[in-house]
Structure formats: structure tokens, C-alpha cells
């Protein structure tokens, strides 16, 4: 029995690590399409993890969130993002304020901080799924980092949904998800925000002929 629990929690841990790796790819890559693919992959892992958690814990409402997140995060949002990328015909790839190596090192530092700051919690709270909380925290922070360091509006969307993924995963792994109604509200929020931001990207492109958010500074005058 205990052996089974250990195997289960290790499986979730490995999924968590895979999610972390896709997030690192998001930071490391210079192609927009790869970024969106990475996001879709991560969402898929997340769905898998939440499905497994539902199965292991026997809490049924997690299945519902799993289903919704599968539909929304794996199919709808990446599809929408690909659509935008195609529609506004982005020629420039991801542009960043800091170079590749430095941002990887910073990402490493962020993950280190996440692990370090959660070490007291994970050592006392639960004996298994120990990697989940630090990884969820680091995904959230890395999403934030992407939003700060990237220039284009579309990567801001990616950063935002990355943060949301992190939060969702944190809630899922520590307390088996939030109440269903809250989750539903969140999903709706994220969908609406992505769509709004998508339209906003489109508008920026229309008016400035670029999606570099730096050009928004011109709006000051």
C-alpha cells in the first residue's frame, strides 16, 4: 500500500518536473511557435496530473476541472494563439530585454529560490508529492519573469497563462483543487482574458504595425 502511494506521488512529481522543463523551454526558445507548443504540452501534463490526482484521491469534482482544462488549455487557447500568430503574420520572433544565457541563469535562480523558500513547508506538511509545491511556485514566478522580460504582447499572454497554470497546479497538489465554482470562474476568467488580450494584440498590430509593447510608450503624449 505505502509502496503504491510512493509510486503514485513520484509519478505526479515527474509530471511536475516535465511541466517545469516545458516552462524552461518557454524561456529558452526564440521561436514563438515553439513557445505555444511548449504551453500546450505543459497544459497537457497539467491535465494528466490533475486526472491522475483525481484518480488517486477519488475526489470526483477534479475530473470535471480536468475535462474543462483539457478542452480549454490544451485545445482552445493554443489554437487561438496559433490563429493570432497566423493572422497578424508575425515575422519577428521572440524578443527579450535580456539575452538567452542570462535569462536561463535567472530562471535557475528563481527555481532555486522557490525550492529554498518552500523547503520548510514541504518537509513538514505532506510526505509525498514534495516537488509539486516548489515547482508550482517556480512556474508562477517564471510566468511573471516572462511577462517582465519579453517585449511582445503575445508573450505577455503566454506569461499570464503560465502564471495561471502554476497557481492551478499549486492548488491542485496541495489541497486537491479549489471548490468547483471557483475553478469554473477562474477558467472563464482566463479564457476571457486571453481573448481580450488577443484582440488587443491584433489592435496594437493594426495601429502600430508591430506588436512590440515598447511602442505603447508613444501613447503617453
Amino acid at each position: 500500500m505505502t509502496q503504491q502511494i510512493i509510486v503514485n506521488s513520484r509519478t505526479i512529481d515527474i509530471l511536475a518536473v516535465l511541466m517545469l522543463i516545458t516552462t524552461i523551454i518557454l524561456i529558452g526558445t526564440s521561436r514563438l511557435r515553439t513557445c505555444i507548443w511548449a504551453y500546450a504540452c505543459r497544459s497537457f501534463m497539467l491535465t494528466l496530473a490533475s486526472g491522475l490526482i483525481a484518480y488517486f484521491s477519488g475526489i470526483h469534482h477534479i475530473y470535471i476541472t480536468t475535462g474543462i482544462s483539457l478542452a480549454l488549455k490544451v485545445i482552445v487557447i493554443p489554437g487561438f494563439l496559433f490563429y493570432i500568430v497566423k493572422k497578424i503574420n508575425i515575422k519577428k520572433e521572440v524578443e527579450s530585454y535580456i539575452n538567452y544565457t542570462l535569462s536561463l541563469i535567472l530562471a535557475c535562480g528563481i527555481i532555486l529560490i522557490a525550492y529554498y523558500s518552500t523547503q520548510n513547508i514541504i518537509q513538514f506538511e505532506n510526505t509525498f508529492m514534495r516537488h509539486c509545491l516548489p515547482i508550482a511556485l517556480s512556474i508562477t514566478l517564471l510566468g511573471f519573469f516572462v511577462m517582465i522580460s519579453r517585449k511582445q504582447a503575445i508573450t505577455h499572454i503566454l506569461g499570464l497563462i503560465t502564471m495561471e497554470d502554476g497557481m492551478f497546479f499549486a492548488a491542485l497538489s496541495t489541497s486537491y483543487g479549489m471548490p468547483l465554482i471557483v475553478e469554473l470562474g477562474l477558467f472563464f476568467d482566463i479564457l476571457v482574458s486571453v481573448i481580450i488580450m488577443g484582440i488587443y494584440v491584433y489592435r496594437i498590430k493594426e495601429s502600430f504595425d508591430t506588436i512590440d509593447t515598447d511602442s505603447l510608450r508613444e501613447l503617453r503624449e
Binding site: V7, R10, T11, I14, V17, L18, I21, H131
Partner: peptide, 10 residues
């Protein structure tokens, strides 16, 4: 069981 370790995966 040791093999099913996220650190080892990385």
C-alpha cells in the same frame, strides 16, 4: 522506487 525520482529524471 529510487528510479521514479524527479531529480533523476532531470
Amino acid at each position: 522506487v529510487l528510479l521514479l525520482n524527479p531529480s533523476l529524471f532531470l
